[in-house]
């Protein structure tokens, strides 16, 4: 069977990152057991257009009650492909974010910035045949959060992706080009290598910006790829 490339854990944040306090009690101490992939790992859920509503990818309109939300209108778009540069069509992408003031529509968010009555802060879409996706939204604000010392999150959008197998499952965060808070953020810097972190920084994309309407940011996503030739299926020890 065709296996997925082993995940390169040196590029992902380790489970324990002292500067991000919440990891201290939530990081497993044992190394995970390494499996060769079985049919349980190379399969995964498949979603269809029937799962998605017409306005689901438009965060400017999908919660609007009596007008547009406050803030900078933006397009977030990009392409999902795998490590072999093959496009991933039919990927489900779900996003969530704070409003322009840095406040989430969530019962546990008590930040003093106000809720926006016209902004829900969540969206979802499927990639097309070429792996492209597109959202319309409001640029989120930075917000403070309790950590070792008062910390500020850079403006960010949470991004969840389903590719074609459960072993490709990925959740990450998108940051915006030029934000001085990125280098000061313990969560962004849980990624050990600065060049790898750059993969999460979406550049401004003036070619896609809409005149008299909105700016655009480009965020390409890479999921685990797989060998093009079949391998003998076997389990590895850890």
């Amino acid at each position: 069977m065709r296996e997925y490339f082993a995940r390169d854990h040196a590029r992902h944040p380790p489970a324990l990152t002292q500067d991000y306090k919440s990891t201290v009690l939530r990081s497993p101490k044992h190394a995970p057991l390494t499996l060769g992939q079985t049919i349980s790992e190379i399969t995964g859920p498949h979603f269809g257009q029937g799962d998605i509503g017409e306005l689901d990818n438009d965060l400017i309109r999908n919660f609007a009650k009596d007008g547009d939300p406050i803030g900078e209108r933006i397009i977030l778009h990009g392409r999902v492909c795998d490590e072999g540069r093959r496009p991933v069509p039919d990927a489900l992408i779900e996003i969530w974010q704070a409003n322009a003031g840095g406040r989430y529509r969530h019962q546990n968010d008590g930040y003093l910035a106000p809720l926006d009555p016209n902004f829900g802060g969540c969206g979802r879409t499927m990639t097309d045949d070429a792996g492209y996706y597109r959202f319309q939204t409001i640029k989120p604000g930075a917000y403070p959060w309790p950590n070792w010392e008062p910390s500020w999150r850079p403006a960010h959008v949470h991004v969840s992706v389903f590719g074609h197998s459960f072993s490709q499952r990925l959740v990450t965060q998108l940051y915006f080009e030029g934000d001085p808070l990125i280098e000061r953020c313990p969560i962004a810097n849980s990624i050990p290598d600065l060049r790898t972190l750059q993969q999460l920084v979406a550049p401004l994309d003036m070619d896609t910006a809409q005149p008299s309407d909105c700016l655009a940011y480009r965020f390409d996503i890479v999921l685990r790829g797989r060998f093009s030739t079949p391998f003998e299926n076997r389990l590895e020890g850890s």
């Binding site: 590029r11 944040p13 996003i95 969530w96 969540c122 949470h158 959740v171 990450t172 969560i187 890479v222």
Partner: peptide, 24 residues
Amino acid sequence: MAQEDKILQETPSQTVGPYVHTGL
């Protein structure tokens, strides 16, 4: 195993944070 088909590198993971319900 050889990984010669690997041209790009997987997007790094980040925590979902405390407000995961808003999106998922």
